[in-house]
Design a binder for these strands. Structure first.
Length: 419
DNA sequence: TCTGGGGTCCTAGGGCGA
DNA sequence: TCTGTCGCCCTAGGACCC
């Protein structure tokens, strides 16, 4: 049996833990730059705030309905997430942290257990330990556990937020209830294609022939079909090193000069390099991209990316920025209003497995320098130590007008209780 | 005026050596 | 020497996830 544990409206719930007056009120969380809505409480969903809604379009609705609006606070969410995962890992040795707010747990040898009771115990422990409400779905496969979880979340009173698919009858009933576009692994494109073929729920999907599914949706679709039929094809995944690392941002306003973009690219590269070193990896490719604002149909559009191969594997900020700037210079075109840029490092290898180059090598002085920079930034606060290519004078600030305190990760933000 | 960010996996098609 | 075939590797693009 697998269980999928999912935190309810995770970001909104994190805010509520420290501001309990928000319970029962509509709450939304905005993306970086306070751009779009990326999380909503149930009350906000009822008001008709869709996922991904541009914040400026809904400003009036927020004001009219006293919606509490927050900028995203990843320090808080990340810390709360690890607390939830720590508690979950006490219930099964086999756990896959699937995302910031979800985890799969595997239960082998639990046949004699009353899973409904066990699920409720899990749920109470997490809520008691963190204040975050969760839903639990049990089923013989991961895809069915996702379905079970959705039912638990949709009918909290009836299910006590725990639902188990453990009979053929329950499986078929659950699949008939699940709309095809809500199935895990079926995105917009496939949902549309399936609907055109008169497949509107998950049960109908499982009735398609293997050949059709294989042809139209590749082995990924076929695996999903088998999973929904109750035949396990997916197991828990072990945490692996990343295969690429990206830092990309939209700008608060549009930029036309290469000096401005160049500074941003230097900062993004520094961030990628720092993440690389944290993962104990080197990379041998750097991709740089720039975009104009696709929403401004009145302006000329331009977007390009370029991949630069490094001469040797490296994780030095200085060396990587050298390549990133070469890339930027090749793709930057005058006369456009740029809204977004990013740096992605690829071709990652662990530090101890890097391929040496015959003719050139990473500057040996960089390693100790980088480790000092990382240490300093860790002890005195992120990005306090910067490279000259990252402008010191100018303040690039993300729009974060509604940022809450970092209640669990900054000493000065810890809530004080005076007795 | 204002529309996020960071990932993974799979397939098709071309280059290339055996 | 020329040609066909196979398999491997790489890349671009598409689809998906949160």
């Amino acid at each position: 049996m697998f269980a999928l544990v999912d935190c309810n409206n995770f970001y909104a719930s994190c805010q509520r833990v420290f501001e309990p007056h928000l319970i029962g009120k509509p709450v939304v969380i905005l993306s970086n730059n306070d751009g779009c809505v990326i999380a909503r409480s149930n009350e906000a969903k009822v008001l008709g705030v869709p996922m991904g809604a541009p914040a400026f379009e809904y400003k009036k609705l927020f004001e009219d309905n006293n919606v509490f609006v927050f900028s995203s606070n990843y320090a808080l969410y990340g810390d709360m997430s690890s607390r939830v995962m720590n508690i979950l890992s006490t219930f099964s040795p086999d756990i896959e942290v699937y995302s910031i707010d979800e985890a799969f747990l595997k239960f082998q040898g639990f046949e004699k257990f009353d899973l409904q009771e066990y699920g409720i115990t899990i749920q109470r422990s997490v809520t008691k330990g963190t204040g975050i409400p969760i839903s639990v779905g049990f089923a013989p496969t991961k895809a069915l556990a996702k379905v079970a979880n959705k039912i638990a979340k949709k009918f909290p009173e009836k299910t006590k937020s725990v639902y188990i698919i453990d009979t053929e009858e329950k499986r078929i009933k659950a699949l008939k209830w699940t709309k095809i576009e809500d199935v895990w692994g079926i995105g917009r494109k496939h949902a549309k294609r399936l609907q055109n073929s008169k497949v509107t729920n998950a049960f109908q999907f499982t009735q398609l022939t293997d050949e059709w599914v294989r042809r139209e949706m590749s082995v990924v679709g076929l695996r999903l079909k088998h999973e929904l039929q109750g035949k396990p094809t997916l197991n828990l995944e072990v945490a692996k090193d990343k295969k690429m690392i990206a830092t990309t941002r939209s700008f608060d306003k549009m930029h036309t000069k290469i000096e401005d973009i160049s500074e941003r690219v230097a900062t993004f590269t520094a961030s990628c390099a720092e993440k690389l070193r944290r993962q104990n990896s080197h990379c041998n490719m750097v991709m740089v991209f720039v975009h104009t604002n696709g929403f401004r149909k009145d302006q000329p559009q331009y977007s390009r990316n370029i991949v630069i191969k490094t001469d040797f594997p490296t994780n030095s900020t200085i060396e990587l920025n050298h390549y990133a700037q070469i890339g930027l210079n090749q793709i930057f075109k005058e006369g456009y209003h740029y809204k977004k840029a990013g740096v992605i490092v690829m071709g990652l290898t662990p530090n101890n497995e890097t391929q040496l180059s015959l003719f050139s090598a990473s500057n040996p002085k960089h390693q100790p320098l980088m480790s000092v920079v990382d240490k300093l930034n860790k002890s005195i606060g992120q990005t306090k130590v910067r490279f000259a290519s990252q402008s010191m004078g100018r303040q690039w600030k993300m729009k974060q007008e509604k940022l809450s305190a970092s209640f669990t990760t900054k000493l000065k933000d810890v809530i004080q209780i005076h007795l």
